[in-house]
């Protein structure tokens, strides 16, 4: 599953490098070039499955200096067939 995100950074300028460095150390995450004035960092995530993508996104959100994470692009072609049913609510005859 591949995603493109935008991380909004709100730390001091001096902390920006460290924030981006921490982001780049997350496996599967590739930061792009930051727009200095806007402090919006493009990020690409290549994850083996949707679960990992969710976990990576949460880690991203928890890094000091990251104010918010928005999603821009998601490709889930390979994963959509693997979604299982839930156990609840099914009519009793089925």
């Amino acid at each position: 599953m591949i995603a493109g995100l935008v991380a909004i950074l709100d730390g001091h300028a001096a902390e920006l490098t460290e924030t981006i460095s921490q982001i780049s150390r997350i496996p599967g995450v590739v930061p792009g070039d930051i727009n200095d004035s806007a402090r919006r960092l493009p990020v690409m995530i290549d994850s083996p499955d949707p679960d990992s993508l969710e976990i990576i996104t949460r880690r991203l959100q928890q890094i000091p200096g990251v104010a918010f994470v928005d999603v821009v692009f998601i490709h889930f072609e390979d994963e959509s067939a693997r979604i299982p049913e839930t156990q609840s609510g099914k009519p009793t005859s089925l």
Partner: peptide
């Protein structure tokens, strides 16, 4: 198979929340 934020949309200017990860997949519960 894929979802992208719509940059021509004034509401979200290309951005989606993390539920955007799942708006397409919501169709395909078994």
């Amino acid at each position: 198979v894929a979802i992208a934020g719509d940059r021509n949309a004034e509401v979200n200017k290309g951005l989606l929340c993390v539920k955007g990860y799942h708006v397409g997949a919501a169709l395909y519960g078994q």
